[in-house]
Nucleic acid binder design. Sequence first.
RNA 1: GUGACUGUAGCUCAACCGGUUAGAGCACCGGACUGUGGCUCCGGGGGUUGGGGGUUCAAGUCCCCUCAGUCACCCCA
Length: 463
Amino acid sequence: MSTAALPGFREFYPEDMALRSWLFDRWRDVARRFAFVEYDGPPLEPLDLYTKKSGDEIVDQLYAFEDKGGRAVALRPEMTPTVARMVAARAQALRKPVRWFSIPQLFRYERQQRGRLREHFQLNVDLFGESDVAADAELLAVACEIMRACGLSADDVRARVSDRRILSALLEGLGVPSPLLGVAYAAIDKIDREPWDGLVARMSAAGIPADVARECLSFTKDSSLDRVRQRLSTAGRAVEFMERMERYEELLVAHGVQDYFTFDLTIVRGLTYYTGIVFELFDVRGDFRAICGGGRYDNLLRDLGGVDLPALGFGMGDVVLSELLKARGRAPDVGSGVDIWVVADEGTGWREVIEATAALRRMGLSADYVLSAEKLASQKSNKQLDVARKARARYALLLSREESATLRSLTDAGANERTRVAAWLHASSAQEFLEATGDEADGLRALLRSRVTGGGTTDRPRG
RNA sequence: GUGACUGUAGCUCAACCGGUUAGAGCACCGGACUGUGGCUCCGGGGGUUGGGGGUUCAAGUCCCCUCAGUCACCCCA
């Protein structure tokens, strides 16, 4: 019996955890800037929550079992049913529009591949109670600004945007009978992955004339807003959807994210509950799976037995995005160590080191030292500095007698300064330190200010 | 769930046609040296060659099974 981690489940060593935290920080920060607030729900849910609405294929891949009370339960595979239930329960009381986000860990039992595990963390951003297309644009802007916050420009990633109502109107206009729209969707979904002859053959076998099938593929493949508008000029309802899409693009310009926007009718999202504009984020080079996907699902809350509230949202997983960031060299330098390494020098010992370290820690700095009292006594200061460098400490504080010390930068040669330890040794906060030191210890003061104001060490791009 | 390919130290890789005690770099640990530095030198720990079975005088190497990973289907958080 193996006790290794289960297939498809990850262990986060500190360097992995640093990247994950870095990513979560960016997710939360952008969501906050867009005025979304964070919520969470249960990781374990009644099995029925998913079997009722999510479709059979998702049910096949559920982590489902019977608990000790005989209940049929499942680890959550997606967040949407949970948030729909939560919003529906308080729909009357919530101020609209409702802007919520969450970072749940989700589970699916399926064979793993690169970018697809049995567990992942997924940012979910949802907006309830607003049917205006402005909400659709706002939602995509969140996703695009997250890309920007991660250092990914429109040269790296693009949003491909579609609307199934436009696609279906177009296909029907081209001569596809409405009962066969599903067949056409399936073919269009594979438009870049399979030879067209095979796709046409499959469509004609299902009853779509071969020339119509070929026209469907070639038109959707190279569709632009202008071309589609010309083609749909006579179809009344489709024109309304096109005008909505054009308005959407204007809004994206105002949000400053139009560079990321691409109109692309070949996006066919799998989930059946989408009702309007849908989008996916892809890396431009096409090396990875979709980074993010979402859209409008105006009927879901009503269908789940709740209230009738328009809704839209997206999910963005941590796996593909992390891989993309690493592959493009945009992942942060996560090897950074502590702020200060305290060194015993000139006959000082463990007592002085620990007292100084404790004071630094109370100020809010991270501080470390040679933990073994025996080694601390025997190791020369240079040996301790080597240890500090290997630990990637940013500064070393060399304690000497007369309660003074030298602050030495380990990243910036020559940036040294003397400080009187006695002045701040008993400070219990950053504020006390700043008051006690006055004009002295500029380096320490600067370090402290950068730490207190949130200038982290983990947001430097890797070279 | 189906198929193909790949598994050697924490990482990247060696090991001739099947032939002695499976090696190297990086990383880690200890020491020497160096008083503005991410050196240099010496030493050390670390492997049931994914696991099990088989063929053979002899298996990291060949065969079978299994587990894991990668890729393509399926499908898509």
